[in-house]
Write a protein that binds this DNA or RNA. Structure first.
Lengths: 207, 207, 207, 207
DNA sequence: GATGAATGAGCTTTCATTCAT
DNA sequence: AATGAATGAAAGCTCATTCAT
């Protein structure tokens, strides 16, 4: 089953955006990577910015979709929280394409300010919605956990969320490390999962 | 005592780089902000990239300098660790210029790959050295703490470092929050300090 | 009886060319207007230029055809001249499609230089022929009028032709007016006819 | 006395715009004609459109300036009208640069709709003002002439203006003629002046 | 030291045209 | 006859960098 051109371009974009950064990535290079003409990219995507927003949107949709499935059962808020961050690790560690998406997610957001066209405004709205969904999921779980005295009430939920989010992202994308010539991460997927679970457990309310 | 032109340009660059991002910042705009001609910027700095590396380098030197002073006494590894991350918060929260530097630090790193000229290679080497110094400080403290059974030995030092670094950065720069229209951070400098200390304490070895 | 596709495309082209101008009109838009695929346009017309030349040619053929019928009887050269320019006004004022053609006629001519292909050279030759026919008709009538002492001999026929042509075109297309925000023309079809007749009468030889 | 680069570019633009038409003219070609880099054109002019508007504006300013001087004395409306159109002929026949301007004036106006930027809106406003000044001059003279029973009252002033304008333009730019392979105009500057004066005289009120 | 006019490589985007289906 | 995905040349514009003054 052949991938359609749309997906082909999207995957090439993920790779090039992540390798070069949004600004340094060129349509020409993405086209070359996808083995497609420059024109075709603009046939499927309104602009370079549209292309990047499409990458981000598809990733967030994927994350929320998986979360929705995972959180159906009646597990505790703390376990749910673990599950949510596990989703991140799973997706980001699954293959390099997804690892790339984590970087793009981080880098692409400032670009969103430049949105002018109607189509892109709609796409941004869709991204915002997916983001809000993700944040709401996390914040609600933290809040529930605190209400049920399962999580430490001494920290504001926003603080906890930032700690978990920052740790998750740095652990998976290896930020801090890469540019300074240190080779690999020095740890693996399993280590990350364990660390995140311990981290969440550390926020449990003292008995 | 008037600031010399070099510093004038550096400060303008910090502001514009942080506001627009490295790529979208233009020499023209930095020149305007510094009330200086475009030509003069290239008189003091070899290139745009040189300018950004100079910003990063000066920040890291500042951080290491402060750390060196703080860690002279014979405090425990855990308290030292707290002191190091406190340095970050202090610098980054001190004024908006330094907060900006946090963002630049994050964003500028991919650019480093493009370094070609000899002068810039030297500058990169200087940055790497300052970075290694910072990392070594952190890693050594974690290692000492684990050896002295003050810190949990179940987690690799790299993991702990990434968690502390990620949390610190997300808490101070508000990443995750900004692009999605949520207004302020919802917490303040004091909250961050408390949270980082609790976080470090959570890695203490169970008795 | 359904219009055939060829005519359908031609009419769509007239509308879009006139609204947007030749250069700004796109094949895609013409195709949409004609409710036809882009590919089909190139099935019926060799190129965009061919399409415009076809519009011009069909208009000139129409003008000459009508003139031929009108000038069969033995009316005076002056009345014939009036009839010829009346044809213009009639066609151009008849409906907006024809008014459009007047604009295209004016705008399209510089494009003719770009003709390269054999097919288009033939089409250009056909246009030239129709044009020559129209000019010859006008010039001959002026010349006859002058010879019969019905028209002022102080003005060269070319001069008279340019005055009549320029007046006719400016009166019908409203050139000069449109771009400066003045609303309608301020006069109607009847006014134009009267003015053109008076203008032609003004060239009558003084007794 | 060397022409400054601004004027150099403006003159190159006049030539290329007139030869190729606004749309077909390229910045690269204008730059080559001016023996200047592409970048410099955008240093002096905001955009290609700005460049053309600048050409039109400078021409209209020139026309109105000359008219203002000519109409200071207390000559009759009819003679004033002759003087105004004489200005056109003088400017347009003076040299090929000015003849070109006549064509650009005609062709460039539809582009004005595309104006978006603030700078260009100001430029458009300036053009509109110069145009209104020109139209007001013409319309006022026609109106005065009719009021003083010097000009035929059977024709609306707008009609007379269009006839004079259209004739003037067609006579000077040779529209109608050029594209059909007929060589020169077949008449000269003197013929045009005589014809325009006769035309204006033909609108005199019958005694 | 300081200026800013001048350069030119490089980018995104448009769109007529082609061709497999 | 008809479609529309795919192509690629060409264009306007940006901006770091240079250099005469």
């Amino acid at each position: 089953m052949r991938k359609d051109k749309n997906t082909l371009i999207l995957n090439a974009a993920i790779k090039i955006f992540a390798e070069k950064g949004y600004q340094y990535a060129t349509i020409a290079e993405i086209a070359k990577e996808a083995a497609v003409s420059k024109g075709l990219i603009h046939f499927y995507f309104e602009s370079k910015l549209d292309l990047m927003l499409s990458v981000i949107l598809s990733f967030l949709e994927h994350v929320n979709e998986i979360n929705a499935k995972k959180l159906i059962g009646s597990i505790s808020p703390v376990d749910s929280l673990k599950a949510v961050f596990e989703t991140f690790q799973e997706l980001l560690f699954k293959d390099s394409d997804n690892l790339y998406k984590g970087k793009i997610l981080n880098e692409g957001l400032p670009e969103v300010d430049k949105i002018k066209s109607k189509v892109l405004k709609n796409k941004k709205a869709a991204i915002d919605e997916q983001n809000r969904k993700l944040f709401d999921t996390i914040d609600k779980l933290i809040h529930e956990g605190q209400k049920a005295s399962l999580l430490n009430r001494n920290l504001k939920p926003e603080i906890i969320r930032q700690i978990l989010g920052g740790s998750s992202q740095f652990l998976t994308t290896g930020m801090y490390l890469h540019p300074f010539g240190k080779g690999g991460l020095g740890y693996n997927k399993r280590d990350v999962k364990k660390a995140m679970n311990m981290l969440i457990d550390s926020f449990r309310a003292a008995k």
